[in-house]
Measured scan of single mutants.
Amino acid sequence: EIRVRVEKDPELGFSISGGVGGRGNPFRPDDDGIFVTRVQPEGPASKLLQPGDKIIQANGYSFINIEHGQAVSLLKTFQNTVELIIVREV
């Protein structure tokens, strides 16, 4: 597990896919977790996150067994800083 802090400027600078009942993700199709799919170059998350990172927690909210829409809404709700716990396959 890796813990990262992303400062919104003005957005977080990454996209996610997956989630329960979602269209899945390109990295682990059998896993309904939330995965980072795109990281904006030079964006707030560019040095912190990589495509394929699985987000398991954001600001204390579990991202395990969460629906895609709910994950997106939560990330939009947070002000300024988001603390993520991620799992990265090496």
Rank of each mutant, 00 (worst) to 15 (best):
E7C: 13
P10H: 09
L84M: 14
G69S: 13
S17Y: 02
N65D: 13
G52M: 05
K8G: 14
K54H: 05
A58V: 10
P29I: 12
D53V: 00
P26M: 12
P29K: 12
E7S: 12
D9T: 13
G18F: 02
N65Y: 05
D31M: 05
K76M: 09
L84P: 02
G24M: 10
R38A: 14
A71C: 05
L12Q: 04
R3T: 12
G33Q: 03
P10R: 08
P10C: 03
R88S: 00
N65F: 03
P51Y: 05
A45S: 07
V20P: 08
I85V: 15
G60D: 10
S46D: 15
G19F: 04
F78W: 13
E7P: 12
K54I: 04
Q70N: 09
F63G: 01
G69R: 15
Q40C: 12
F27H: 10
A58F: 01
F14W: 04
P41F: 05
N80W: 07
P51I: 07
G21I: 06
S73I: 06
F14I: 07
N25R: 07
N80R: 14
K54T: 04
G19S: 05
K8Q: 05
I66S: 03
Y61W: 10
V82R: 02
K76D: 14
V4Q: 01
V20I: 14
G24Y: 11
Q70V: 11
D30T: 11
D31V: 06
D31L: 05
P51L: 09
T77A: 13
E11I: 04
D31R: 05
K76H: 11
V90A: 15
T81D: 10
E11K: 12
F78I: 15
G33V: 01
V39N: 00
I86H: 03
G43H: 10
F63T: 04
V87K: 13
L74N: 04
E1W: 08
G43W: 03
R38I: 15
E11N: 10
F78M: 14
E11P: 04
G43Q: 06
K8H: 06
N80H: 12
G19Q: 04
T81E: 14
E83R: 06
P41S: 11
G22P: 08
V36E: 00
D9W: 06
G13P: 10
T37L: 12
T77G: 15
G60V: 03
I2S: 03
G69K: 15
N25W: 06
E1M: 10
V4T: 02
S17Q: 11
V90P: 11
G18V: 02
F63C: 04
G24L: 10
L75V: 02
G19H: 05
I2G: 02
E42N: 13
I86Y: 03
G43I: 02
A58K: 02
A71H: 00
S15R: 06
E1C: 06
S62F: 03
E1H: 11
R3I: 09
V87M: 13
G19K: 05
S73Q: 14
A58M: 04
V39W: 04
K47F: 11
I66K: 05
D32C: 08
I86G: 00
K76N: 14
I2V: 05
P51Q: 08
T77Q: 14
L84S: 00
A58H: 00
G33P: 02
A45W: 02
S15M: 10
V90M: 13
L49P: 00
I56F: 01
Y61C: 14
V20S: 13
N59W: 03
G13I: 01
H68A: 12
Q57L: 06
V39R: 00
F14C: 00
Q57G: 10
F63R: 00
D9E: 08
G33F: 01
S62G: 05
E67V: 08
G13N: 03
Q57E: 14
S17N: 06
E7A: 11
I86F: 03
K47S: 12
L74F: 09
A58G: 08
P44C: 10
V36M: 00
F63H: 03
G18I: 04
R23T: 15
G21M: 07
V6I: 15
G33M: 04
L49K: 01
R28G: 08
Q50K: 12
N65W: 04
G13E: 00
Q57R: 15
S17E: 05
E67T: 15
N65Q: 12
E89Y: 15
I56M: 07
F78C: 08
R23P: 08
E7Q: 12
K54P: 00
E89T: 09
Q70M: 12
G33W: 01
G18Y: 01
S17F: 02
I16W: 06
G13H: 02
I86D: 03
R3N: 12
S15G: 07
V6M: 08
S46Y: 08
K8Y: 05
E42Y: 15
L49I: 15
K8S: 09
I2Q: 07
F14R: 00
A58R: 01
I56Q: 07
I64F: 07
Y61S: 09
G22M: 08
H68L: 12
V87A: 14
Q57T: 13
G19P: 06
L84H: 02
G13K: 03
G19I: 02
L75S: 02
E11F: 06
I85K: 14
A71N: 00
P10L: 05
I34Y: 02
I86Q: 00
I64M: 14
G43L: 05
A58E: 00
K8T: 09
G13F: 04
V6E: 02
I66T: 04
D53Q: 03
D53H: 01
V90G: 14
T37H: 09
G69I: 14
G19N: 05
Y61Q: 12
V72G: 06
S73M: 11
Q57A: 11
L12C: 09
I66W: 03
R23K: 11
F14V: 04
F27Y: 06
V82Y: 06
R38D: 14
A71M: 02
P29L: 10
V72R: 10
N25F: 06
K76Y: 08
N80F: 07
G22V: 07
V72W: 10
G18D: 04
E83M: 04
I56R: 05
G43M: 06
F27I: 09
Q70T: 12
E67G: 11
G69H: 13
K54V: 06
I86E: 01
N65T: 09
R88H: 04
G22A: 10
E1P: 04
G33I: 00
F27V: 08
I2C: 03
L84E: 03
E7R: 11
P51A: 11
D32A: 14
K47W: 04
D53L: 00
S62T: 10
V4S: 02
N65I: 01
A58Y: 01
K47E: 14
Q70L: 13
V87G: 14
V4P: 03
E7L: 12
G60Q: 11
V6K: 00
V87E: 11
D31W: 03
R5C: 12
A45Q: 05
D30P: 06
G33R: 03
I34S: 00
I16Q: 02
R5G: 03
V90L: 12
S46E: 10
F78V: 10
G60C: 06
I56P: 00
E67Q: 11
Y61I: 13
L74Q: 07
Q79S: 13
G69A: 11
F27W: 11
L74V: 07
T37R: 09
L49C: 04
I85Y: 09
E1I: 11
T37F: 11
T81G: 08
G13D: 02
K76F: 06
E1L: 06
R28W: 12
P44Y: 04
V4E: 00
E42P: 03
V39E: 01
D53F: 00
T77L: 09
D32Y: 08
E1Y: 15
S73R: 15
G60M: 05
